[in-house]
Simulated scan of single mutants.
Amino acid sequence: MQQQVKKHNPFAKFHVLLGQMPGVDKEEMVWQYSGLLTTSLREFYDKKPYEFGKMIEDMQRIVDEMNGKKPTQKRKAQSWDKTELKKLRSAVLHRLQKHGIDTTDWDRVNSFMHQPRIAGKTLGEMSIEELRKFIPKMESILVKDKTIRDEYKRLAQIN
């Protein structure tokens, strides 16, 4: 007999906490915490996992205060931070692949990233904030790559 593995439901804690907060509107809360992006809990979780985690932490703090509990000390590394870090690194690696870098070769990845005009440090050394700022930079590099390729195609057609 196979043992069933329970999947983590990121929305369960939200709904439990929401149930303990009378008068709070789910859509309004998601709308505010998502930065006026959406009222959909799933879309919010998918597009802004860090902010979703922050909302859950704030809800937990409010419920604890309502129940007379003292605030707990923050853990050093929040699981939401780890989730976002993983998503951002994955996004960077995807863009590096598009740029033509073999992402299975960490020496190549790190030597590219370590260039002063790129990031100045390896992927593993970058913080969440640095990764957030790096993705648009990598996007502009990809746009420039496409522009150059298109120009080469145009010139090849002329000749």
Rank of each mutant, 00 (worst) to 15 (best):
R108C: 06
K47W: 03
E65N: 08
A77Y: 12
F44L: 02
H114I: 11
H15K: 15
Q3F: 13
D46P: 04
H15L: 12
D145F: 07
H99S: 10
D105H: 02
L93R: 11
W106D: 08
Q2L: 08
F14L: 15
I141D: 10
N159E: 11
K48Q: 15
F14M: 05
V24M: 09
H15D: 15
R117A: 09
Q115D: 03
K137A: 06
V109K: 00
E130K: 00
G53M: 00
S34Y: 01
M138E: 11
K133R: 14
K137C: 06
E28R: 13
Q20L: 14
K74Q: 13
G124M: 03
D105A: 00
S34G: 01
F134A: 14
G100C: 03
T72F: 06
H99M: 12
K133Q: 15
M59T: 02
K48E: 09
E151A: 09
G19H: 04
F11M: 07
T39N: 03
F134K: 13
G100A: 03
T83V: 10
L17M: 00
M29H: 10
L123G: 01
R149G: 05
G19K: 02
R42F: 05
W80S: 09
Q97F: 08
H94E: 09
I118Q: 01
N110M: 01
V92Y: 04
P49A: 01
K153S: 11
Y50D: 12
G120Q: 00
H99E: 09
H94M: 07
N110R: 04
K153Y: 13
K137R: 10
L18W: 02
D145C: 06
T83E: 14
G19T: 05
N110C: 06
S79D: 13
T103K: 04
Y50G: 13
V5M: 08
D105E: 06
S111M: 07
K47E: 09
M59D: 03
F52T: 03
Y45E: 01
T38L: 02
K98S: 08
I62T: 15
P71H: 01
